[in-house]
Structures are given as structure tokens and as C-alpha cells.
Design a protein around this nucleic acid. Structure first.
Lengths: 351, 351
DNA sequence: CCCGCGTAGTAATTCGAATTATCAGCGCCG
DNA sequence: CGGCGCTGATAATTCGAATTACTACGCGGG
């Protein structure tokens, strides 16, 4: 029965019920325990029902000093098309946990782009601040922007391990160190004695973690680390074979595809002559979900990054961060998938 | 150099700059045209930059101002898992267009669920009002909530045609009427003379539109409509065959799968003995993107719903709506995919 | 010399809800 | 009969930003 103006306020309800606005608020919030007569309460509730009153969330949250909104900033597009469907598991976890924690999600899509990349600081101001806190994800992040965020003491959590010289950053990452070590251990157990690491040249945190895990495992077995840095798969494979490796840890599945092709060109059988393990399924060219593989359905031996859990935990950590602004770091274990590209070395290769 | 206590307000900026809060507001909103000295303005802007001030969206909207934020409300989860990847094309279009228009997107995930479904009005609150306007999507919507939204005169656009008895609703839909008519026309051109429609029992807008298109086409060719309503595919197929149909328009691909199986059981070849056309790819069990089909890779004859475009246009319509609150409706054409389940009827069946 | 006017701000109000301080009325006790 | 304590409600304030109403100041013209 509301008039055309569209919205009923507590004040209007109060006037209709012949009470003050405060009473309406009290009735609504159940703080009417001993303060309000049953008759008054009933009268107010009657009017509330008749008018179809709904709480204006703006007023409520203005007083609460928090808007119950978590920002989600991605350096690339959130809803990806094509096969590069990298973010979805993260976002699924984020959405689920945000729903569980009672927060809305604000996707920062407005800022426009500079050099084809999104930026946090647009015109010198930090859009992220309109949310209570923010989750950041994306591989192409800008260290400078992160440093600035840290300095501003804005509550944020990075999905994926990130370090900054300016101070500790809260993040939820995957334990690449342990996962890589375990893969090495598994190959060792199969009988491999020359296990190489094929790494990318660019040095970001995930790459460094994999190298750390690899080197720890190699040290444990008193073997010299065999690390190959190359952008050209043919060259890298040749180097590795010259060293006599029987198993190769490959950082990305894109790179692994190249290696596999080269191995076939050289007449090598995988895994009979050479075992290949991919360190993570993080690469966009690899489909995480079970339903399909684009072109070559190679059943890679690899470990899987717990993307869904990382997203969910990022939300949880951020909510904790809002209550207590002490930075926290969290790494989650990866799960190993045995696959079909790694096996015990053929006896020919074992001296 | 903000203090740890969280957000910076205009009042704090004003104190630091030695001016009143009103001046800060004026500087921010450019109404400083002739009112404020360049020196004062520079001083304020200096402090604004130093403190990293950003507006409190709650305060702004309480006052009735816009925040350049569009809400996105989905009745189901936004980032779907498994094969039911229904929303993504819509959301991709929404995100792209929001970025182009300079809006951020607010996903309403906070309210939790009642009877496993999300609600706009949760605990008597309409959270949508945080955003300047909202895009709604999802098949399981609640007419009551829509009516309430209309009454509140809140600007929103539904993705998919929706009607409400309380007043006109803005929407961006797909033209099922025309698409169904064209499919009928195409089959007629192939020589089919008994073309049936297999419809679902539940009567929502898309279903009604398909029926309208079908009946229009049948009327044009002076044929009685052959509509079959059945949840059991075997029964529906038998009814249709009894009527002598040679082509069947099937509403959802899930239903089509059932019909196809039954047809095979009866020893019928598709499309030789029976042509099947699916009216849309809207069903979750059908993969929209090119890269894979879950189990049976049936190349259905069907029309495709322009989901990406619908999302993008919904944003555009919503932005128009914000400028001028006159409701608007828009339907976009579907594209036809010939596929392999429909062809000219075999001569045996033509008398 | 003083009114009028333009300038450059400031004070005060508004939005809706929550909360605190306050107040009116009543019964009871000294 | 006055004051205390309790009840049930109201007035006032708060949150942050935008806007309107207002004011202090200076200058020029009559």
C-alpha cells in the first residue's frame, strides 16, 4: 500500500503507528525485550507489514562503519573466454566463501587499462578502498602498486605467494616447494637417479619455489642439481639428455608440450625412455576441469594446484585480517596426479 | 600516511587542510568552479592524495548519489562448477561492457540462501540498493520479489524476458518467437509437413515464446498445431509418431537426449526417419563453448542463444535506465546452427 | 559614510537507521 | 507530601557526503 514515491522509512512507519522512529528501530531489532509494551510492539509490527517496509541497507551499514563488501581485483579479465579459463576455480572458491561469510563481492572492472593491463591506482587514488578489504589475483601484478598498498595498510590478500621489499604481504599460496620435492622423491623411488628441472627464465615466486623444492630434494640425495633454463624446448631437451637425465620436471604444461614433441622427433618414447612431470596445472593451456582437453589429450603426470581451496581460504584470511590487521601467510598442499608421462626408467638407461 | 583506524573521511581531510568538510566535498565534485581559490583547492587536493581518501559509497548513496557500481544478482551461483556452465557467456558480456562503460560490478553473494535459493530481499533488506542499478539473471526467480523491486522503482534489467503483473519490467531477451518460427520455416522448406513441438509442462516466458513462434508458423501454413506436453520422452515420442510427425521441435537438449534414445529404441534413424531440432542451447547439460561436449557429442540442429550479446546489452540498457527511468525491452536474434539431426524427410514418409 | 554586492568560504541540514541520553509518569517508601 | 526508582517511550546524536543557507570581508558607488 505504499505511495508512488517507492520507499517506506522507519520515520514514516513511526508516524503511522503514532510512535517515534526509535521505537520502530527497537521493534525491528528485538531490543524490545523489556522496553516496549506488547500493544505498542504489535501496533508497530502491524504497520510494518501493511507498508511493506524494508530496511535500507545504506543507513544500517553507514552506522556499522563496514559495508560488508570484499573487493576482488584481477589483473586480467574475470570471466575468461576460450581455453584460458584459469581463474574460475579461484573465483568459485571466493564466491562460495564470501556467501558463507555474508559478504558481497565487488569486481573492479572500471579502472580502465594502461598498457593493456588493469591497475589498482587510477588517477592516484586507490579504488580498492571502497570495499572493506580486497582479494588480489593475477600473474601480471605490479610490485610498485603492491608496495603502495602495503604502505597504506589497506587490508588485502593475494592469491598466490607474493613478497614485497616494503613489508610482509598476506597471501594464500600453493606449496610448490613441498609438491616439487615430493615429485622428485617419487621419481627417485621409481629408480631415477638423474632428475632434471626445466625452468622458465623469468623469476617470479612460483618459479623460485619450484627451484627451492627441487634443490632441497637433490641435496637430500647428494646429487648435483640439474637445472636447465631455456626458452627453446629443443635446446633444453638436448642439454638435459647430454647430462644423462632420465626424468625431467617441467614447469609449465605449455613447455611440456614442446618437450614432448621434441622427444618424439628424437625417437624417444615417453615415459619409457624419458619421464616427464609437469609442476602444476596452472597454465592456461591446460584445462583444469575434467570434461575436456583441447587438442592433444596428454595425460600428464603432474601435481594439481588447489585453486578452489585457495580462493576460499583467501576470503577467510581476509575476513580475519579485517578483525586483526596482522599479516598472515598460508600455503596449501598440492595433490599429485600420477598420469601417464612418468614411470620407472627402462633398464637400458640404468647402468 | 593513514592511521591504522581504517578509512579516511572528508572531515579528517578537511581538518588536515584547515578547511571545512563542505570545501572538500566541493573540490571533489568539481563544483569549485568559481567558489574556491586555486590555492585552497590545491591544498585540499594535496591532502586528498596524501591520505589516499576515497568516497564512502554508503554515505554517497544514502544521500542518493551514484557510485558507478552496477549490481549483478543471480539466483544461482555465479561461478559455476561442472558442466552446468550456463552463466559464463552472459557474465563475460556483462563484464566487458561494464569495463567499457566504466562501471564496477557488485556481486550479491552475502544474503545466504533460503530453500537453497538466493533472495533479493533478505531479512527485510534490499541489498541491491547499494549499487546504482542491477542486472538480474537466473531461471528460478521469484515473481513477488520482482513485483517489490518494481514498486520500489529500483532500476534493474532482467537478462531474459520477464513479465510482471505489477508493471513493465526492463529486460534483454532472446527472440525465441522468431527463432522458433524460422526453424519451423526451414523444416517446411525441407519438405516436412507434420512438424510437432515438444514442450515442457512448466510455463515460463521462454516456453510460451517458443509456443507462440511455433503456432504462428503453423497457422501461416494452415496446419493444426501439434503440441506435445510430456515429461516422459517415450510417451511424448509415441504421441508424436501417432500423429504422423516427421520433424519435432524439442525445447531443451536434455529432453532431446531422451527423445533421441527412445527413437533409437524404436529403430528410427535420425534424421532419416525423424528430424529433431533443439530450440536453443540454453540447457546446462549442453556446452556452449566450442571446446568439448561431455558424453554424447551429438551435433544437434538448433539455434543458439546470443548470451554474450545479451549480457553486454543488459549493461547498456541498465546504463540508459539510470539516465532515464523509462522501462525498455530488447530482444536479440538467435543464430541458427544446421547440425546433423534434421534433414529432408525420407520419401517413404511422404505420401 | 554607508549600503549593496560579490567573493570565499563556513555552519547547518539532509539522507535512514541505530543508539544513547533524556524525560514523563506512576507507585512506593520515608 | 516529596523524592527515589522504575517503566516506557521520546529527543538527540551518530555515521559520511552533498547541498543549501548563511556570514565575514572587502570594495565601489551614491
Amino acid at each position: 500500500m505504499t505511495a508512488g514515491s517507492g520507499r517506506v522509512t522507519q520515520a514514516q512507519v513511526a508516524r503511522l503507528a503514532g510512535v517515534s522512529q526509535a521505537v520502530v528501530s527497537m521493534v525491528l531489532n528485538g531490543s524490545d525485550s523489556l522496553r516496549i509494551t506488547p500493544e505498542t510492539r504489535d501496533r508497530v509490527q502491524q504497520v510494518l507489514r501493511e507498508t511493506g517496509y524494508t530496511v535500507d541497507i545504506m543507513g544500517r551499514r553507514l552506522r556499522g562503519k563496514s559495508n560488508q563488501i570484499l573487493g576482488v581485483f584481477t589483473y586480467e579479465s574475470v570471466f575468461p573466454s576460450g581455453v584460458a579459463d584459469f581463474y574460475r576455480p579461484f573465483l568459485l572458491g571466493i564466491e562460495e566463501e564470501a556467501e558463507a561469510q555474508g559478504f558481497d563481492l565487488l569486481l573492479f572492472t572500471s579502472g580502465g587499462r594502461r598498457d593493456g593491463r588493469r591497475r589498482i591506482y587510477d588517477q592516484g587514488t586507490n579504488r580498492l578502498r571502497i570495499a572493506d578489504g580486497s582479494i588480489l589475483l593475477g600473474r601480471h601484478n605490479d610490485p610498485q602498486e603492491l608496495a603502495q598498498l602495503v604502505e597504506e595498510q589497506f587490508p588485502f590478500v593475494f592469491v598466490g605467494r607474493r613478497e614485497s621489499p616494503t613489508g610482509p604481504i598476506s597471501y594464500v599460496g600453493a606449496d610448490y616447494v613441498a609438491a616439487t620435492r615430493e615429485v622428485h622423491e617419487w621419481l627417485w623411488g621409481l629408480g631415477h637417479r638423474k632428475i632434471g628441472l626445466l625452468s622458465v627464465t623469468e623469476e617470479n615466486e612460483p618459479t623460485l619455489d619450484r627451484r627451492t623444492g627441487y634443490e632441497a630434494a637433490a641435496r637430500k640425495h647428494r646429487r648435483p642439481p640439474l637445472v636447465f633454463l631455456a626458452d627453446d624446448p629443443a635446446l633444453a631437451l638436448r642439454q638435459a639428455l647430454d647430462e644423462g637425465v632420465t626424468a625431467l620436471l617441467v614447469e609449465s604444461s605449455a613447455m611440456a608440450d614442446g618437450i614432448l614433441a621434441c622427444a618424439h622427433d628424437l625417437g624417444l618414447a615417453v615415459p619409457a625412455d624419458l619421464s616427464l612431470v609437469v609442476l602444476g596445472d596452472a597454465d592456461p593451456s591446460q584445462q583444469p576441469s575434467a570434461h575436456a582437453v583441447p587438442s592433444t589429450p596428454t595425460d600428464w603426470s603432474m601435481f594439481r594446484i588447489p585453486r578452489h581451496e585457495m580462493g576460499a581460504h583467501a576470503v577467510r584470511v581476509l575476513v580475519e585480517l579485517l578483525a586483526d590487521p596482522k599479516p598472515r601467510q598460508l600455503v596449501l598442499p598440492c595433490t599429485f596426479h600420477e598420469g601417464a608421462t612418468a614411470a620407472a626408467p627402462s633398464t637400458v638407461h640404468i647402468r
